[in-house]
């Protein structure tokens, strides 16, 4: 079972990441749940999404201690890093997040300058896909192809023109 917490600013595509992960897991016939934070904190503050991908039926969709935290901004790292399991993983968007040595000494941290990479691709909004690419490389929990398929389902048809750049971002994070 893999418990993933995606977190960042509202507008960074945090819930979309959660949906993508859940969709990809579902495509691989796993049990999945995605629980977005929908409270007042979403506007301007932090948004997060709890995703579970499991071989077995999921009892509770809530996550007290994630296996993986994907922190897209500093506030999410500060808020959630303590919850991550000691054998877990933190993926930090180093364009916006500084990880101190305290955290680094306790938990495996993978940093990626997702925002910078996304801007190089010409669209800041695909930073979340760069981070998801890293997640697949580090955990092998789901296949990159499943995430690519998920894009077609997550984007409404009128936005399908954005799929190629999202795929590029996924691959960049995966290969790096």
């Amino acid at each position: 079972m893999q418990r993933i917490l995606t977190a960042g600013f509202g507008g960074q595509g945090i819930v979309s990441m959660g949906k993508m992960l859940a969709y990809a897991g579902m495509k691989e016939d796993k049990h999945v749940s995605a629980l977005p934070s929908y409270g007042p904190e979403m506007r301007g503050g932090t948004a997060n999404c709890s995703v579970i991908i499991s071989e077995k039926e999921i009892a509770s969709p809530f996550i007290s201690h994630p296996d993986t935290l994907i922190a897209m901004n500093q506030a999410s790292l500060d808020k959630f890093s303590e919850l991550v399991l000691s054998d877990g993983l933190i993926i930090a968007n180093s364009s916006l997040v500084k990880v101190n040595s305290d955290i680094r000494n306790k938990i495996k941290v993978v940093e990626i300058s997702a925002d910078h990479i996304a801007v190089e691709f010409g669209n800041l909004k695909v930073a979340n896909m760069v981070a998801l690419g890293v997640f697949v490389r580090e955990t092998a929990e789901i296949k990159l192809d499943s995430l690519k398929t998920a894009l077609e389902k997550i984007f409404p048809p009128r936005r399908h023109n954005l799929i190629p750049i999202n795929i590029k971002a996924l691959e960049k994070g995966f290969k790096r």
Binding site: G18, A22, H31, V32, S33, A34, L35, P36, Y38, P61
Partner: peptide
């Protein structure tokens, strides 16, 4: 409840 309404599952 709010969580059941917002939660995504297959």
């Amino acid at each position: 409840d709010g969580f059941l309404g917002q939660m995504m599952e297959p």
